[in-house]
């Protein structure tokens, strides 16, 4: 029973931190914490399909975009939409879509999840690595659709004046929920089945596991939270454009889950903080530098060079990341049992 008590205390502590941070921390620092919370939601769900189930996907940016657009369209008031859609008049359905914040982000999640289902059918029917290329392609396609359908998305101009409902109560609260959901999945027959698919697909099948179904469950769950995270991002930033959801977003998340350990949710938590913090600290690399009288021009992309080298080096020399595929609690448990 003391495990339950421990978990309740942890949850209470997180909630206390969220309330404390939202009310006392300066806006600049609070922005970083919000960013971490949103990226945590995204990375945790990305780890479910990539790490736990072992299906290499490059999905996030596409699903985040879907969630962000749905949420934005449902939150922006009708009058604002009429003014904002500059290229063509908005489609009637766009004007009708309106809801509360919670319904909006959940709708975004469900929409992303539904697309994931549609992609699952062609991709998971064949064994192999098509998921990666199909999801990579999907990230580009979604941008093409956003640009070419201005009556829905306002084209390349994007959407702005999205009501800024998302604060740390929302981002932190949903991150907490996402974490609990992922842990609950992992420590259930579904999590075991997903891991078995990762370890040995033939043996999993021989145990009666429907591997197609397990991959699809993982992929849809992942997409749902990417969509919700996208909705939070849209509301938090209050403006979105198609270019914002580039592959860069997916790449950041990939770094996080590799650093934390593919399959480890607590590792993802630690890595999200490290990588998001690192991104902030390395921001100077992209800007111009004046040091000891020497002048270096601004090099946008320099940070990404550093991060891609980091990713390659990690894969070559520290493939397991911080925690491998284990959770912090597993490590303590194993110490005791020995």
């Amino acid at each position: 029973m003391n495990k339950i008590v421990r978990n309740l205390i942890l949850i209470a502590a997180v909630i206390a931190f969220i309330i404390f941070a939202q009310n006392t921390i300066e806006p600049y620092d609070l922005r970083i914490i919000n960013n971490i919370a949103i990226f945590l939601i995204l990375a945790l769900s990305y780890n479910l399909i990539n790490g736990v189930t072992g299906q290499f996907s490059l999905e996030p940016n596409g699903f985040i975009a879907i969630g962000a657009y749905f949420t934005a369209i449902m939150l922006i008031p009708t009058e604002t939409k009429v003014d904002m859609y500059a290229l063509v008049d908005p489609a009637p359905v766009i004007l009708q879509m309106h809801s509360s914040f919670l319904v909006a982000i959940i709708t975004g999640g469900i929409a992303a999840s539904f697309i994931a289902l549609l992609l699952s059918i062609p991709v998971f029917r064949v064994r192999g690595d098509y998921l990666a290329i199909v999801t990579l392609g999907f990230g580009f396609i979604i941008r093409i659709f956003a640009i070419n359908n201005p009556e829905y998305t306002n084209g390349a101009l994007g959407l702005n004046d999205i009501p800024q409902t998302a604060n740390l109560y929302w981002t932190g609260g949903i991150a907490l929920v996402a974490f609990i959901v992922m842990i609950h999945i992992i420590y259930s027959k579904f999590g075991r089945a997903m891991k078995s698919v990762r370890d040995d697909e033939d043996a999993a099948t021989a145990m009666g596991i429907n591997t197609f179904k397990m991959k699809t469950y993982a992929f849809m769950t992942s997409a749902f939270f990417e969509g919700v995270g996208g909705g939070l991002l849209a509301s938090y930033l209050s403006t979105i454009t198609p270019d914002q959801f580039s592959f860069l977003l997916t790449f950041q998340l990939l770094i996080i889950i590799v650093l934390g350990g593919l399959g480890s949710m607590s590792g993802t938590l630690v890595a999200t903080i490290l990588v998001m913090g690192g991104m902030e600290m390395l921001r100077f690399l992209d800007e111009e530098i004046n040091i000891f009288g020497l002048h270096f021009d601004a090099h946008p992309g320099m940070r990404m060079v550093v991060f891609s080298i980091l990713l390659i080096v990690m894969m070559l020399f520290a493939r397991k990341g911080l925690l491998g595929d284990r959770e912090l609690s597993d490590i303590f448990k194993r110490k005791k049992s020995r």
Binding site: R192, D200, M207, G208, G324
Partner: peptide, 25 residues
């Protein structure tokens, strides 16, 4: 031998039993 390498012995065996666990996602 094709065991699930990253899983405990208990979890390996539970996989076999899991079809009988009648709870939903």
């Amino acid at each position: 031998i094709r065991l699930f390498k990253s899983m405990s012995v208990l979890d390996n065996i539970l996989i076999g039993f899991d079809a009988r666990a009648k709870y939903s996602y």
